[in-house]
Amino acid sequence: MTTTTPELTVPPAARVPAGTKAHTALTNRWASFAAVVIAVLWTIPTAGLLISSFRPQADVQGNGWWNFFTNPHVTLDNYRAVLHGSDTDLATYFVNSIAITIPSVIIPISLATMAAYAFAWMKFPGRSVLFVAVFAMQIVPIQVTMIPLLTLYVNPPFGLPQLAGGDAPGGGFYTIWLSHSIFALPLAIYLLHNFMKEIPAELIEAARVDGAGHVRIFSRIMLPLMMPAIAAFGIFQFLWVWNDLLVALVFGGGSLDVSPLTVRLAELSGTRGQDWHLLAAGAFVSLVVPLIVFLAGQRYFVRGLLSGSVKG
């Protein structure tokens, strides 16, 4: 295996004409230079805000973060202020983000795994039509569904209890959980179904001959085998929900009581736009969890990303 970058795999000299060699050397230097430029451009903005989050307020608002290197003052006051200050109070929103995210990951993945199993291994009339219909719903942008869905929550049919509004149970979390779950289902069913189909049919047949029902096959054979796929989608869904702004804005009903970090940060960016010492620390409070999840589950991530970016 070789690469298209001559930079690092220096070809044996005998094979390469002298002219090409000179040309290669030239592109090499430019190539390395370009790589470094891109890497720096991609890192500096984040580094600047990260450094600012540790500088005292007067420094942050008085001069640029690059002055930190000649005049280093480090403080944790910004984080203290942003987490527990009465007007920012991000600790509360951090809890909201957790309370929103965990059910919004568990519920759709469980339901999707079950449905994927049914579509892959159960025989029932209309199976393929139904599967194609579910698959096709991936196309729908969530914007298209929002207002009618919100209306359903406020005025539910069949005399079901109201899910949105002041008297709603769970203080308004239910609409966010339910919405995230609904929006995740088509993609999750499709992906998990693809994984399930790869499991050899003989395994299922053998279990059925031994008298195992679908529920047993599902819980004893399928779930353990599906764990990598479930983890992959779980990480993807976690990041999606944690980083979401639109669903929380629309279905949280504008009530800050159930708003996640993203909503609060966006709010602060509007009302406290010049308080960069707070915004910087706030941004990193919200970034730390997805960063950890991402670094821990990196190897599962790419496939989820590739197939998941259609979502939303």
Binding site: L111, A112, M114, A115, Y117, A118, F119, M122, F124, L130, A133, V134, M137, V140, V144, T145, M146, I147, P148, L149, L152, L178, S179, S181, I182, F183, L185, P186, I189, G213, H214, V215, F218
Partner: peptide
């Protein structure tokens, strides 16, 4: 069993995506 496996997801997609669309 089939109903228990498929129905919750299908109902949610039907009421939550198809009808609103």
């Amino acid at each position: 069993q089939t109903t228990a496996f498929v129905l919750p997801a299908v109902l949610m997609i039907g009421f939550g995506l198809l009808y609103p669309m």
